[in-house]
Nucleic acid binder design. Structure first.
Length: 540
DNA sequence: TATTTAAGCGCC
DNA sequence: AAAGGGCGCTTAAATA
């Protein structure tokens, strides 16, 4: 059963929909939470405009929903999918449904005053159903993709609602140990100031601001250091007394500015970090994050502050070598699948005889998926092509398509955006035209792998979320095992100690199910490394 | 002065 | 001969 959520003069009107979107009976409610309280037991699929906008209020009321259709996210997929190219939806001009997500509710009513009037979600749902229905044999996969995308949006809102356990006291202690005491505003912490002093002395540049790359580069050159940039990776290869203190300084400066006291003040409240995930925020289907939290870039250096509550555990699950395994499954490449069957795909590639070291296997696979062709990686590629022709054909075909200006499409039906037309002044320059085409090819090459891996991860998350909710039906979200974090190929569950092992099993089973959902009963497997720990930093 | 761009670095 | 994907954030520099 689908239940459409439509704004009413007072509160919301809930309308029953059939599979094609035809409207049936309706009921009025004071607000969405009240509607959920009334209807969720019927196990509906809620149809609403924007999960990020509607769902937080439901969660705030202590409720949750099992399933939804996020019309905004679904629109984005159907707008550009090759499978719905001829639909009315794809042909229509951009409208409010193509807008980025709304600010989440609770940030003040004034925000909504400037939003355009809500377009009718019932009409949009019917347009979307028609587009999917016309997609022929691709329709079931598109259905899966829309369901997974929408489930991800629910999970994102729930993870923000419950938050990731964060021990501010431990975080402060690690900052003090690394940087010294918290400085006054505008000052450098003691340890940073010391290293800055050492850098200035080594370069004989008493006024140098080491935070300024051009200034630093000039000072390095003056001191006879042959550096083309001030990147740490480049500096590391050089020998000079300034290098050690400079690298120390850079490391501390990064910690101070990105995840120091200010970050803590802004992002951790009541023992929780509430990440602002943005489902579908990346064209490939990966999530993005917003705001200063940097949820998808939590550095390892601060993960020791992520600690389970007393009596609870963190269950950290990481999909091992996800992208090459996805490629093997996507290409139905039996040889590559066999190489992955042992658990270590790169070791399996060595065992197949294609290359002679694990390191070579890894470099070559990354080159195949990203499009590097130079150096060592480039020389290894022909050997991969001989050993795994089907897998390599998938990425090569995707690259050629991108170079020809075509789009490519993931397993479930997300298509790459069309390329920008080259600027006028570029069309005359054949080298530039070719360089653009190659860059486009690298993008489309990676798109099919990264995008399909994102679909696998979304499915994994959706299945795990459903199973977790099933085992804790009727219990408030935060009182039973629940998802707290996601990073592309990694899921973290916060679970009562007694439920941690079961959660670990659940995450493994969900991964296997996700593989079958995307690729059928193919022999590919998607092993996950699971660790039951107190601190996030103790996993791997 | 306010906003945009670039460099650098973190994550996958 | 060379040719490495996707992000977000902070600071400094450049531009309006």
């Amino acid at each position: 059963m689908h239940l459409l959520v439509r704004a009413a003069e007072r509160g919301v009107r809930i309308v029953a929909l059939d599979a094609a979107g035809r409207e049936g009976g309706a009921s009025d409610h004071a607000d969405l939470a009240d509607a959920v309280r009334t209807w969720e037991a019927e196990a509906p699929r809620w149809v609403w405009d924007d999960t990020a906008r509607r769902y937080p209020a439901v969660l705030a009321a202590g409720l949750r929903v099992a399933r939804c259709v996020d019309l905004r996210l679904s629109r984005a997929i159907l707008r550009s999918s090759a499978h719905t190219r001829t639909s009315e939806l794809a042909a229509s001009p951009a409208d409010a449904w193509d807008s980025p997500r709304a600010e989440s509710a609770g940030d003040g009513a004034a925000l909504f005053d400037v939003l355009p009037p809500d377009p009718d979600p019932g009409e949009e749902f019917r347009r979307q159903r028609a587009a999917v229905a016309a997609a022929g044999e691709a329709a079931p996969r598109l259905e899966l993709l829309l369901a997974a995308e929408s489930a991800g949006a629910l999970a994102a809102a729930e993870m923000r609602h419950t938050g990731l356990p964060w021990r501010a006291d431990l975080h402060r202690a690690l900052l003090a140990a690394a940087l010294g005491e918290r400085p006054a505003p505008g000052e450098r912490p003691r340890r940073m100031a010391e290293h800055a002093g050492a850098v200035r002395r080594a370069l004989d540049a008493p006024d140098l601001n080491p935070d300024s790359p051009p200034e630093l580069l000039r000072a390095l050159t003056r001191a006879g250091v042959d550096a083309r940039s001030t990147r740490s990776s480049e500096l590391r290869r050089l020998t000079h007394p300034v290098i050690a203190p400079l690298l120390e300084y850079k490391g501390l400066a990064r910690l101070f500015s990105a995840n120091g006291w200010h970050w803590l003040d802004q992002n951790v409240r009541d023992g929780r970090f509430r990440p602002d995930f943005v489902p579908g925020g990346v064209v490939t289907g990966r999530w993005a994050s917003a705001g200063g939290g940097g949820a998808l870039q939590l550095p390892r250096a601060v993960r020791s502050a992520v600690v389970a509550d007393p009596g609870w555990k963190l269950v950290v699950a990481d999909a091992a070598q996800l992208e090459p395994r996805v490629l093997a499954a996507l290409a139905d490449d039996a040889a590559m699948t066999r190489a992955g069957a042992s658990g270590d795909l790169y070791a399996g590639i060595v065992a197949s005889g294609a290359v002679d070291s694990r390191e070579h296997a890894k470099v070559a696979m990354l080159a195949a998926m990203y499009g590097a062709t130079s150096g060592k990686a480039g020389r290894l590629l022909p050997r991969l092509s001989r050993a795994f022709p089907r897998a390599m054909a998938v990425v090569e075909d995707a690259a050629r398509a991108g170079e020809r200006g075509e789009t490519v499409t993931t397993r479930l039906g997300r298509s790459s955006p069309p390329g920008d037309a080259p600027a006028y002044d570029e069309t005359a320059d054949q080298d530039r035209v070719r360089a653009r085409a190659r860059a486009r090819g690298r993008f489309t090459r990676n798109f099919v792998v990264q995008g399909t891996a994102a679909e696998w991860a979304l499915s994994w998350m959706a299945i795990a979320r459903t199973r977790l909710h099933e085992t804790a039906s009727g219990v408030p979200l935060a009182e039973a095992a629940h998802l707290v974090f996601f990073v592309h190929d990694e899921l973290v569950v916060h679970a009562p100690e007694h439920a941690a092992t079961a959660a670990a099993d659940l995450l493994r089973r969900s991964a296997a199910e996700a593989g079958k959902l995307l690729f059928g009963a193919a022999p590919s497997d998607f092993p996950v490394a699971v660790a039951v720990v107190d601190a996030y930093s103790d996993a791997k």
